[in-house]
């Protein structure tokens, strides 16, 4: 699933490890999300959106 996680993370100067620790997941999971190989669960998607002070729709994009 297309997403803006890498853009949002780098804009805040965060490493993948720092974001992973904030989300209580592994660094590899953040990497997989950014590379669009793994679609996160709804709770993790919401947690990411809240962390970046935005909405899920602004972070994740479903291609119609």
């Amino acid at each position: 699933m297309r997403n803006e996680v890498r853009t949002l993370r780098t804009a805040r100067g965060l490493s993948q490890q720092q974001l992973a620790e904030a989300m209580d997941v592994s660094r590899q999971t953040i990497n997989s999300i950014e590379k669009e190989r793994y679609t996160p669960s709804l709770p993790l998607a919401i947690a990411l959106a809240r962390y970046f002070d935005t909405t899920v729709e602004e972070v994740f994009h479903v291609d119609e």
Binding site: D24, V25, S26, T29
Partner: peptide, 18 residues
């Protein structure tokens, strides 16, 4: 190794559950 951490427990999260 992420594989060993995931198999062993410490690396487990929702992606590993899947």
């Amino acid at each position: 190794s992420e594989t060993l951490r995931g198999l062993g427990g410490p690396g487990r999260d929702e992606r590993w559950a899947m």
